[in-house]
Simulated scan of single mutants.
Amino acid sequence: MAYTIEKKDKGYLLFTITRSEKRNAINYDVMDGLAQAISEAVRPDIKALVITGAGEQAFCSGGDLSIFHSLHTKEEALPMLLKMGNILYSLLTLPKPTIALINGTAIGGGCELAAACDFRLAKKGIKAGFVQGKQAITTGWGGGSILAEKLPAAIAMKLLIDAELNTAEYLYEAGFIHYLYDGDSVEACEFYLEKMLAKEQAVLEAYKKIWIEKWQESKLHERMMQEINRCAVLWESEAHHQYVKTFMEKKVHKD
């Protein structure tokens, strides 16, 4: 199993990507698990959804190129990109608080997953970045459009265009990370969530709907789909294929 879904005693759902040997990269199984967790989080006994990665090295290293490297053309890549984009929109518009518990490195699509959550908590010393630009593509799951909703334009644009790994401390100052912690991830998360989980669920849902309605009004889903289509065009470019080839060759030598 590529993931676990656990209901915690304090009333939230914990989704963990359990592919630490792959730096918690997202494959189709993880996508299906996320969709399942989002649908389970709607239950009346769940007050929040927390997403994290197994181990201490990585939160999520984005899409698993060892799986997706076989997607060469726009037509081949688009279904995968759309599938995850729609999952992220479902996560974004879940009528409960959502938390990315960034316990290790977050790269590329891992940052898109984190961006789709309402709150981002990061372990001190980790690094994260929207590195897709270095892969000759853009954010492929709608994460750029999501980031544009959540950060000032110049800050969001610089994070995307620079395509660098940044420290959690830098991202905290930029407003992408909301809380830095040391020690046990789940304990830190429960400390951060304590006041939220003490509220009536109807209150949590009513507040979340303020933002859901805003995103619906601004046609965020439509904008995410347009972003994904633009990424699919870049996906079939020679520059991206060359990046993937180099990545796979390095991986073979490492293994």
Rank of each mutant, 00 (worst) to 15 (best):
M1Q: 11
A2N: 14
E6M: 05
K7E: 15
G11P: 14
Y12P: 07
T18E: 13
K22D: 11
N24A: 07
I26R: 12
I26Y: 12
D29T: 13
D29K: 14
V30S: 10
L34G: 01
L34K: 03
Q36Y: 08
I38N: 09
A41N: 08
R43W: 05
P44H: 06
P44C: 01
D45G: 04
I46W: 01
K47D: 03
A48H: 05
A48P: 09
G53D: 06
G53M: 03
A58W: 07
C60S: 15
C60W: 02
C60N: 15
G62C: 04
G62W: 04
H69S: 13
S70K: 15
L71Q: 14
L71M: 13
K74A: 13
E76I: 08
E76A: 14
A77H: 13
P79W: 05
L82A: 10
L82T: 14
K83I: 00
M84N: 05
G85P: 12
G85S: 11
S90D: 13
S90Q: 13
L91D: 03
L92G: 01
T93I: 01
L94T: 04
P95I: 00
P95S: 02
P95C: 00
T98N: 03
A100I: 04
I102G: 02
N103S: 09
I107D: 06
E112L: 08
A115Y: 07
A115Q: 13
A116F: 07
A116I: 04
D118F: 05
D118A: 09
F119G: 02
F119R: 08
L121V: 07
A122L: 07
A122T: 09
A122N: 08
K123D: 05
K123Q: 11
K124D: 00
A128Q: 04
A128C: 04
G129E: 02
G129M: 02
G129V: 02
G129F: 03
A136P: 00
I137Y: 00
T139Y: 00
G142D: 03
G143K: 06
L147Q: 00
A148K: 11
E149Q: 15
L151G: 06
A153S: 11
A153Q: 12
A154R: 08
I155R: 10
L159I: 14
L159D: 07
I161R: 14
L165C: 11
T167I: 09
L171C: 11
Y179H: 14
L180M: 07
L180D: 07
D182N: 14
D182R: 11
G183Y: 10
G183S: 09
G183I: 08
D184M: 04
V186G: 04
E187K: 14
E190W: 04
F191C: 06
F191N: 10
Y192A: 05
Y192E: 01
E194C: 07
E194W: 05
K199I: 05
Q201E: 12
A202K: 15
V203C: 06
V203R: 10
V203I: 11
E205R: 10
A206G: 07
A206T: 13
I212L: 12
I212P: 13
Q216M: 14
Q216G: 15
S218E: 15
E222A: 15
E222Y: 14
M224Y: 11
I228G: 10
R230K: 12
C231F: 02
A232G: 06
L234Q: 13
H240T: 01
H240L: 01
K245R: 08
K245L: 05
K251R: 10
H253Y: 00
H253W: 00
